[in-house]
Design a binder for these strands. Structure first.
Lengths: 328, 328
DNA sequence: AACATTTTCGCAAAGGTTTGCGGAAATGTT
DNA sequence: AACATTTCCGCAAACCTTTGCGAAAATGTT
């Protein structure tokens, strides 16, 4: 419990605290001789600067906040991993908090970020966020907020998204190339920004092909997706099922397996995913890639720009790429 | 950028800083009248205590460190999610760092934890950790360390593990109940503490059944597992494949799907997992549960005990439970 | 030797909070 | 009214670091 401080070092060496402080950061004011003495002793005593004291004095925390509905998610975990990795390389630490899709907790978390004087916040909105008060307070305090995945509709904010429209278009193109007559499209929670964008874009792409049947359904989780798929398969004979996310895909796959169906023979499958789940199966599911990792790296570099003040609010997109498997 | 401080409140109200501080925490010394005045103004001004200042003064950080090889992992993500959730409820925040299985980064991360004066750290050893110096320094500073998953062999440390021996025994029992003649057992990196424990226990259980063929192999990742499985299936005809982890299972499943095999008819499958992956398939893979969530909750409550000083070093186990699917 | 310049260092304030102690004001007791 | 209590609040130090400014010491210049 014996923490070395600048004071301790200064007392031992019989010099002032400020000299020690300066020596440790190679300030030119300090002679090479004393500097070396200080550095050696600091090394020997395992001196490690008190982050709280530094932050209190400098008002610069080298700490970033990151909030997601839950860490335990195929997509967020890769996003987080990427952000943490890049942050570490730049000397930043990341404080990761979960909202559990609860707006109240979300507010508390933002408060925590503020209390810890984070230099910036990455935020994925909870499902039911309507009140942006907490985020406005961030702006008042000049703490940059970079939204990702589920982002607010409001303009003038920093947002990092995958190219939702394009990914849906890509999906539509692929589907329309084939001679499919009936398409079942399953989406997630309709409140999510990504759901809205993907759904709209897909519907739009199908408008020019009125002969093709487009069945659209929503499922809040994979179980619902599973049940809905069963119900739809009872009533219709879709040639292909499009899933807007891993969550949905999982439910669909269960139904297909339960019914002993085989893709792509009995029915084709197409999904949007980061690839983890699609690659678990054989044949691999064809998917349009949403790379949490790419999103994370982009978000971090954008955050760095924000912190350094050279970045007007803008929406950045990670391009959508088709990854062919054997399911279409 | 206008941060409210105790000083500002005190100046507006014409009272001392200490009175404001005390009023805000309902100290009995302060009259109800002033207390209310202070609280109201603090509310109006969105006062939010500066965590750095508090921590500097109180030497109590309400911050916990958590280090894993990578966040992006079926098991760790649930562990982290559980710890973060419980921590939040108790007013703690979690600083999550990844080692990337690099001992150098591991050391740096520990240093970061120290600089931020965390109250405790949860650590999963990197694959190649041999030097425990960083952790010893934690002990010198009276910062409790709770190890989990891949833990050091050394005694006298806090460790939270799943019941590795028991889970392997459970697996062996289940296998031996059936009329299997040949068993392929696939393990992960032999350096991992969990690998060692599981492998030893399984072998031990099979010693009393010398007529049954036990083929043991190691794979560092799922691709290796996939290849090894192919190779083994070419040469042998195991009745069942036992996988020590999700990572391994994934590789095995690919091979099985590639070969057009069906479980449990052509070959049986048994794994150790938190359930996420096994439940993706139909029939579900039978697995012995290692719940990252349970482990996380246990780890956190143990950490709380450590922080409060009422806990001698000990190894806690999360019980192993068999979850029947349709793969055996 | 007298002066100007450079090198090297220390003083002190600041950042925001907590807390032991002591003192003034209010209240109670005879 | 004189005293003892209780209630309420402020002073000041401490936590550890950074940094502007000024001053002493060393060096250079004539």
């Amino acid at each position: 419990m014996h923490n070395t401080t600048l004071k301790k070092i200064s007392e031992i060496l019989g010099i002032s605290i400020s000299t020690v402080s300066r020596a440790l950061k190679h300030h030119p004011d300090i002679s090479l001789k004393t500097r070396q003495k200080v550095i050696d002793l600091a090394e020997a005593l395992d001196y490690e600067p008190n982050a709280s004291a530094v932050q209190l004095r400098t008002r610069n925390s080298k700490l970033l906040g990151l909030m997601v509905p839950t860490i335990s998610n195929y997509f967020y975990e890769t996003f987080i991993a990427a952000v943490e990795e890049d942050a570490r390389k730049q000397g930043y630490s990341v404080m990761i908090l979960q909202s559990g899709n609860d707006p109240v907790i979300e507010l508390e978390n933002l408060k925590l970020f503020r209390q810890n004087r984070v230099s910036g916040v990455f935020a994925c909105l909870s499902l039911s966020t309507t009140d942006m008060k907490g985020f406005e307070r961030m702006r008042e305090l000049d703490i940059p907020v970079v939204f990702f995945d589920n982002v607010p509709e409001e303009d003038g904010l920093h947002k990092i998204c995958m190219a939702d429209e394009k990914s849906a278009q890509l999906a539509a193109e692929l589907i329309l190339q084939q001679p499919y007559q009936s398409v079942l499209a399953l989406f997630g929670n309709p409140q999510l920004s990504i759901t809205k964008k993907r759904e709209e874009a897909l519907k739009l792409a199908f408008q020019s092909h009125p002969k093709i049947e487009l069945l659209v359904e929503h499922a809040g989780n994979s179980e619902e997706a599973q049940n809905i798929t069963h119900a739809m398969l009872d009533k219709h004979q879709p040639d292909i099922i499009f899933c807007m996310s891993d969550e949905i895909l999982i439910g669909v796959l269960k139904t297909i397996q339960q019914r002993g169906l085989h893709y792509p023979d009995n029915i084709a499958l197409l999904t949007i995913s980061n690839g983890t789940i699609p690659k678990l199966f054989h044949p691999q599911i064809t998917y349009i890639e949403t790379s949490g990792e790419k999103l994370g790296r982009l978000a971090f570099s954008h955050m760095l720009n924000c912190i350094n003040g050279n970045s007007e609010a803008k929406e950045l997109l990670v391009d959508a790429v088709l990854v062919k498997g054997g399911s279409v």
